[in-house]
Design a protein around this nucleic acid. Structure first.
Lengths: 215, 215
DNA sequence: CCACACTTACTTACTGGTTAGTAAGTCCCA
DNA sequence: TGGGACTTACTAACCAGTAAGTAAGTGTGG
């Protein structure tokens, strides 16, 4: 967790370790994104930073550990555009999801890495499967809570488990649209399609029209 | 194409070639499903049929060709429960999609293979990417046409491109739900969630409640 | 009806390539 | 002068694909 050394140091020049690790993480994200975890090699990652694969192992110990740090790195990047630091609730959450989709349309590499690793993670004993599983369950909880919040605001009583069903559908549609967009960017407008799909699910769940402002 | 010899032969015993190929295809589906294409080896596939990897190559020539036949095999299996042979249109199509989801809940292997290969296919130069891309575009066309058909039945005029947007969302939600279900079958009722999501999207698209009978 | 020609379904053995990981040494900066 | 950031050199494993051989059919001509 606490990696220390975050520009708080008085001395000017000491970017080496933390900085190099960050470079490697970015490179690994690109490599795992474009080739997958199994097919993307440490040699590929190392070459992008201009070192040998043994140099990468010096910093991360093993390929599995590197993957773990890449996933955490993605999480960090993912929320860094949120100044509030905290994930919003209620309708703000859905606006946030659409905004993220919009940003993602210009971050193909990260989207690809996420899609590839998520798909790969359903294989037996994949090192990322617990991360993806955990991620899904956290997201499910947050989105379901937001659905309940909006329902409360509108005085709608939801059947049992309905919020979770809606949350699952929202997560599913976002992942699925990313896949289609990656394979054929012309066929899908990522942000627009995401907004449309989330609105549809919320509207059907809450029984009254839900709109998400197109930023 | 024409593989000839389809039980029309008078002589009783000659299942060897065609039968062996089916065995290998089934094994390859399991292997690619549980390990992915790159990580699943010909040795793995061969072992499941009780031969060597060279024996597999004798039948399929190369690993890439084997993958292609696996994908076609999946298509064949996928529609074989349709007696009409033809994919239905209108509301029947959506009923068919839900029914398929229901069947899929008992065919984890095939779902896993599809999910893994679809995810892997977004990597650079993957041999399955054109298949997946083609599959998406065909599905998109068929589902969009079904949406238009239902809209016509209900005297609803759809904005331009709305049918395609709905189709994309339907495809996305199905793929996404499969992923979640594979990673945590307890958290998602595949058929139920699929029905819910498709109903939501159709309802929002057509402006009036759409129900799909739960078979 | 059977022997010879040919095909099919493999196996064994190998090649050339790639992989993650290790160990030991070198260079450079503080 | 000492420690971190590497490199070089290596290993052991695994991979797809090829080549050559074998054993068991299958078809056919006499």
């Amino acid at each position: 967790m606490s990696e220390a050394t975050e520009q708080a140091a008085p001395k000017a020049k000491r970017p080496t370790r933390a900085h190099r690790r960050e470079e490697i993480l970015a490179a690994a994200t690109r490599v795992f994104g474009s080739k997958g975890y199994h097919q993307g090699s440490l040699v590929d990652v190392a070459a992008q930073v201009g070192i040998t694969h043994a140099g990468v192992l010096h910093h991360f110990g093993s390929k599995d550990k590197l993957l773990w740090e890449v996933l955490e790195y993605r999480d960090r990047v993912d929320v860094q555009h949120l100044e509030g630091k905290h994930i919003p609730g209620g309708m703000d959450l859905f606006r946030h999801l659409v905004t993220t989709a919009q940003l993602n349309a210009d971050r193909r590499g990260i989207v690809q890495a996420y899609a590839v690793l998520t798909g790969e993670s359903v294989t037996d004993g994949h090192p990322a499967s617990s991360w993806v599983g955990h991620r899904f369950s956290v997201l499910r909880g947050e989105i379901a809570e937001a659905v309940r919040e909006v329902a409360r605001e509108r005085d709608v009583t939801l059947p049992d488990g309905e919020a979770e069903r809606a949350a699952n559908a929202v997560i599913a549609v976002m992942d699925g649209l990313q896949l289609q967009w990656l394979l054929d960017p012309e066929a899908v407008d990522l942000a627009e399609a995401t907004r449309f799909a989330i609105e549809s699910i919320l509207t059907a769940t809450l029984g009254s029209t839900v709109r998400i402002a197109s930023t």
